[in-house]
């Protein structure tokens, strides 16, 4: 199922519910995820869209949007590399990786590269401690990283676009 049909199914479910039904809220996170999958991040307009579809207020949507680490309220690159900085990766050099990421990309953490190609973000433990230091690239695990591997990865991303 793609994100658009996903969203349509959600909207159909919502249409069955009365305006004040507490279950409407449950659609907020899936709705945000689906929009973000298409747009890369949620701008104010997207928040308004989620509010409109769920029948909740923009403030109520924002309460959730700003809580979650995987919902981006600021532009993110077309590719997002999330580097784990928790203990197991930390023990195996995550801090050096994060520094290297800034150095090779020339972009500071959390920012988007000038060509919009990628962002590098620190992340909490990704459940990849057996492959530490690890990262997620667009949701795919990349393990056993070192500075050279990271540099290659960033270069590949730049070339792909």
């Amino acid at each position: 199922m793609n994100d658009e049909s996903n969203r349509q199914a959600l909207q159909e479910d919502l249409a069955q519910l009365p305006a004040t039904d507490p279950q409407r809220r449950a659609a907020i996170v899936p709705m945000m995820q689906s929009l973000q999958a298409e747009r890369g991040y949620l701008d104010d307009k997207s928040i308004k869209e989620v509010a409109q579809v769920t029948g909740l207020s923009t403030t109520e949507v924002e309460e959730l949007a700003t809580f979650y680490s995987l919902i981006y309220r600021y532009p993110a690159g077309r590719h997002v590399l999330r580097v784990c900085d928790s203990l197991c990766c930390g023990l195996r050099g995550a801090d050096r990786l994060l520094q290297a990421a800034e150095k090779y990309s020339g972009v500071s953490l959390g920012k988007v590269s000038p060509d919009g190609a990628f962002s590098v973000l620190p992340s909490i433990c990704l459940g990849l401690c057996d492959q530490a230091p690890a990262a997620l690239l667009d949701g795919e695990a990349v393990g056993s990283l070192d500075e050279a591997a990271l540099q290659a990865l960033l270069q590949r991303l730049q070339q792909e676009d």
Partner: peptide
């Protein structure tokens, strides 16, 4: 599963 060190559920 988000507890640092834990990856069994994955």
């Amino acid at each position: 599963e988000s507890e640092p060190g834990t990856f069994k559920d994955r």
